[in-house]
Design a protein around this nucleic acid. Structure first.
Lengths: 100, 100
DNA sequence: ATCGTATATCGTCGATATACGATGAAAGGC
DNA sequence: GCCTTTCATCGTATATCGACGATATACGAT
């Protein structure tokens, strides 16, 4: 399906940047991080980090909640495992019998 | 390692485009395709398809050989499975005990 | 040598991505 | 009330992407 491809491309694009990969690794290690912490570890401006987080959020790769003054971001592990499975499927036994 | 992140980002970026995902699916189905065939199935200009194939090639996601006047492109299945494993690792048990 | 076919590369241009600083909103402490 | 901290968003400058047509290259056929 064509929408699948679009959605996959959006997820992959969201991951296809060193800064966002670093953020994801950080989140994988710490379960949840607030923005300030990610600003320190990525060594980028706070506005830039917020922008990257928005990209990850739009791709359904992270969750987000506010607590006091802070925003906490957390990995969406299901989103990742779905993507990983789709990648496997795509090159292993893709489209045996499907149309597109 | 930082180079790992760069390399992963390049691979992910190479996949992060609907046209290139379609090409990859086509290659997954047919084992090998020449450019002309991909031009027909993607409905893009030949120069555009060549450009996309170059992107996939630089990311080590496809192999390439010439035969007579044609270029044949083929999936690098190892490249894909490596990427899929790295993705799994990244969000499952990334960096238990490593430095970066 | 010339022609036709298949492909790669170049040049261009609009669209999108990436970075930053500035500004403002929300919440807590004084 | 006012100040600080934390974060999101806006505006802007720049870089990269993605599409195309035009051109170059390679090679088999005539």
């Amino acid at each position: 399906m064509s929408e699948d491809i679009e959605r996959q491309a959006i997820k992959l694009a969201a991951l296809a940047h060193p800064a966002r990969l670093k953020i994801v690794r950080q989140l994988a290690n710490e379960n949840a991080c607030c923005v300030k912490h990610l600003v320190v570890t990525t060594d980028l401006a706070q506005s830039t980090v917020s922008q990257h987080l928005k990209t990850l959020l739009k791709a359904d790769l992270v969750f987000f909640r506010t607590e006091k003054q802070s925003s906490w971001y957390e990995l969406n592990r299901e989103g990742f495992s779905q993507l990983s499975k789709e990648l496997d499927h795509m090159f292993n036994d893709c489209c045996k019998g499907c149309d597109s």
